[in-house]
Amino acid sequence: MNPTIQRYFTDLESPDKQAQYEAYQHLIEATRTEVDWAYEVWDQLKEDLTNKDAHKRSRAAQFLSHLAISDLEKRIIDDFPKVWAVTKDPKFVTARHSLQSIWRIALAGAEQKQLVMTHLVDRFKNCLDEKNYTLIRFDIQQNFRHLFDQSGDEKLKQLAIELIELEEKAKYQKKYKTVWR
């Protein structure tokens, strides 16, 4: 791992919140494409998924989601349940940030895509008893949109529209449809 990336990971632990934020932004940007250092941080990130610090849990889930495209060993398939658990974190902002990045795992390959899609569809259908379920459903629609934009796969769009039609309240259907404009 190059020294700059190492410094960003070190800066995540800085007492300076601005340094933490900038390090986070740089790491997210660095992981938008494949990297050769994914496994140098993988185990620590996996461990951080259950850290008492909500920021560490959130960042770990987001980074692992981004690093899935660099995961040639397909570790994410076994580790997915731990990442997915953070999308249901007791701290809603942690859960939401994790859910908003989970779609990136689907970019890693067909098996990973199927895993993510199955979980997103199930969550959309069964989240009515969760607090802020309309935001969860909106984020799931946004995940579908991101995947559609990356792949152009019309089946994703069709599935997303079918899910929107399951919503009984017209105002929420309208809200979810804004993702597809």
Rank of each mutant, 00 (worst) to 15 (best):
R145H: 10
V41I: 02
D43G: 09
R75L: 04
T134W: 11
S65L: 02
M1S: 09
I161S: 01
P81L: 01
A160W: 01
T118S: 12
A160N: 08
T10F: 08
N126S: 02
F148W: 05
D129G: 11
M117F: 10
E154V: 09
D16W: 03
K82V: 10
N2W: 12
A108H: 10
Y24P: 08
T134K: 14
K56Q: 12
K175M: 13
T33E: 14
A106T: 05
R137V: 10
T33G: 09
K171H: 12
R7M: 12
G109R: 06
E154M: 13
R96N: 15
S101P: 13
K17W: 10
T33I: 15
L99E: 06
V41R: 00
R59N: 10
K177V: 12
Q25K: 09
R104F: 14
R104T: 12
K82M: 04
H26A: 15
H119T: 10
Q150D: 13
C127S: 11
Q20E: 10
L99I: 06
R123F: 10
T87K: 02
R181P: 01
K46S: 13
L120E: 03
S65G: 05
F144T: 08
L120H: 04
I69H: 07
D89K: 00
D149I: 05
A60V: 00
A85T: 06
F63C: 01
S98V: 05
Q173E: 07
F138Q: 13
K131T: 13
M117T: 14
Y176D: 10
K46I: 11
K17T: 13
F138Y: 15
A61F: 06
V83Q: 01
Q62G: 10
E168S: 14
E34K: 06
R57Q: 15
D122P: 08
Q114H: 15
R137T: 09
Y21T: 09
K56I: 04
L147Q: 00
S14Q: 06
Q25R: 07
E29W: 14
E130K: 04
I28F: 04
Q25D: 07
C127P: 02
S58Y: 03
L135M: 11
D129N: 11
R137D: 11
P3S: 15
N132A: 11
Y172E: 09
F144D: 04
V41M: 00
K155Y: 03
D129V: 14
I28K: 09
H55N: 15
Q62V: 13
A95V: 06
P15E: 06
Y176T: 05
T50K: 14
A19R: 13
P15Y: 07
D16G: 07
L72W: 12
L49Y: 06
H146Y: 15
G109A: 09
L159Q: 12
D79Y: 01
I102N: 00
T178D: 10
E154L: 08
Y21H: 08
D11N: 07
F9P: 01
E168I: 11
W180D: 05
D48K: 03
T10H: 12
D78H: 12
K157H: 02
A108V: 08
R7A: 08
E154Y: 04
A68E: 00
I76H: 00
L99K: 09
D53C: 13
L147C: 00
E13C: 07
E168A: 12
E29A: 14
F80R: 04
T134Q: 14
D79F: 03
P81D: 01
N126W: 02
R181M: 03
P81C: 01
L12P: 05
